[in-house]
């Protein structure tokens, strides 16, 4: 069952996070993919890598530039979405669904609650 929109949390670096038990799914927001334009290359972190909150662990490249993707929370990389490496356009077409980047086994599940909810992220976008 797809999670409700309100179950999604966001970062100021334009990542989204969805929680399922102790596993968080992470991607970049639709706003981020729009700003980046057509992606031509995605690099994902290695499985089992331990990442800190705010650590750069993936890279997206458009025709024009490369940008880092940060892990919103601390944890261990449990799964990566190889399909977006094969076809980066999936991120442009469905950034907050099929275009997810990686799944993270969280060090601290409660940390999820500290991230922005949809309303807070929308408000943040207004300030940009």
């Amino acid at each position: 069952m797809p999670p409700k929109k309100s179950d999604t949390r966001y970062t100021k670096d334009h990542e989204w996070v969805r929680l399922d038990g102790e596993i968080a799914t992470v991607g970049i927001t639709d706003h981020a993919q729009q700003q980046l334009g057509e992606l031509v290359f995605v690099e994902l972190p290695e499985l089992e890598r331990e990442v800190a909150a705010g650590e750069a662990c993936a890279v997206v490249e458009s025709v024009k530039a490369a940008s880092d993707v940060y892990s919103p929370l601390a944890g261990r990389i449990a799964e990566i979405n190889e399909t977006i490496v094969e076809d980066p356009e999936i991120v442009n077409n469905d950034a907050e669904g099929e275009g997810w980047f990686f799944r993270l086994e969280l060090d601290d599940v409660d940390s999820f609650e500290e991230l922005m909810d949809q309303d807070a992220y929308d408000e943040f976008l207004e300030t940009l």
Binding site: G37, E38, V40, S62, V63, K64
Partner: peptide, 8 residues
């Protein structure tokens, strides 16, 4: 549709 790729 616009964007670097499409304009190119």
């Amino acid at each position: 549709k616009g964007g670097v790729m499409a304009e190119h």
